[in-house]
């Protein structure tokens, strides 16, 4: 089986761009708190979702619907409605994280294929087995904290499909369980769907440099031309032992395009491109590059695939992240 290329769509235009560029599968979410990229101007209303699924199916591609935040107490309505609508619109699968939402989907729509979101933070065999056995999960999106060896070991043991991140940001924290952004802003990525919401981000001129702030807290200071990431708490500079550093993660992007053979040999089913918050041009460029790389791999073309993606990589630099053991 060829590696399945799973691509982001923050808008209907991005969905069409991803399909034109060679995506096998596109993932997207509703325009509300039910998905983990709840940023202004992004995502799909119900009519757009119906048209998107129809369009993808006309082109024999699949659509996965991310409903991967955690409902707040006494308000499961939006999540239930999202699942019901994804089911009635013919979505190929839903990507879920919350135990309660999983239970609802399993009971109400047993025929609707369920994937486990990275937000569920299932990073070992037993965790994946819990979700698989309890909610008949058919695919798990593995956290970005595992080495290739660990990915291969998990693939062998869990008995369901695995999807791994191939391009996007490096998430150093256990996803779905990080409260840093709400600690600084009062808005929860976990239940409201936006880490470092734009409403709380500000940039302040500071001499020849710029300070980026979240909730009024300075996360970074950088000069013109210096690589800098969007100010999420884990991409900030902090002072320990009197020295400022990128304590959690450098401003680099994950790019696994030159280790696709290793990921295929590890037995993964699908490669996930991150970036529902990015524009159509990003989607077209990244998806096309990965399409070429996967096709070359299929042909047994061992010539190195020139990536050329650093221009769209966050911070302009790239890493293999946790796939290499030295990362941690």
């Amino acid at each position: 089986m060829s590696l399945e290329l799973v691509c982001p769509a923050g808008t209907p235009a991005a969905l069409r761009a991803a399909i034109e560029a060679g995506a096998d599968t596109v993932y997207c979410g509703y325009r509300d708190c039910t998905n983990a990229r709840n940023y202004p101007g992004l995502n799909f209303d119900e009519a757009e979702m119906e048209r998107a699924i129809a369009y993808a199916h006309q082109h024999s591609r699949k659509v996965l619907v991310a409903i991967n935040t955690f409902p707040q107490a006494a308000n499961p309505g939006p999540w239930h409605r999202a699942i019901d609508h994804a089911a009635s619109s013919g979505a190929d699968a839903v990507i879920l994280a919350d135990i309660g939402v999983l239970a609802y989907a399993t009971k109400r729509h047993p025929e609707l294929r369920r994937h486990l979101s990275v937000q569920a933070s299932a990073s070992n065999e037993l965790s994946i087995a819990f979700f698989r056995d309890r909610f008949d999960i058919r695919r798990v999106v593995l956290p970005r904290v595992l080495s290739i060896e660990q990915v291969a070991a998990l693939v062998n043991r869990v008995g369901i499909e695995t999807e791994v991140f191939a391009f996007g940001s490096v998430g150093p924290m256990s996803e779905g369980r990080c409260f840093l952004s709400s600690y600084m802003t009062g808005l929860s990525p976990t239940s409201e769907g936006a880490c470092a919401p734009a409403s709380h981000v500000s940039y302040v001129e500071d001499g020849a440099a710029t300070r980026s702030c979240l909730g009024g807290i300075t996360l970074n200071r950088f000069s013109q031309g210096e690589p800098a990431a969007y100010p999420t708490p884990c991409k900030g500079r902090y002072v320990t032992h009197g020295c400022a550093s990128y304590l959690f993660e450098e401003p680099v992007a994950l790019n696994a395009i030159d280790i696709l053979a290793d990921l295929r040999d590890a037995g993964v089913t699908a490669l996930k491109i991150e970036g529902r918050q990015r524009g159509r041009a990003y989607v077209s460029e990244v998806v096309a590059s990965f399409r070429r790389a996967i096709d070359a791999l299929e042909r047994g073309d061992s010539a190195a695939v020139a990536s050329g993606l650093h221009a769209v990589a966050e911070g302009g630099r790239e890493t293999h992240g946790a796939y290499e053991k030295g990362w941690r």
Partner: peptide, 11 residues
């Protein structure tokens, strides 16, 4: 993560 009744009840 136990943020809601649904998760609570399963556990």
């Amino acid at each position: 993560n136990v943020f809601n009744e649904g998760a609570c009840d399963v556990l």
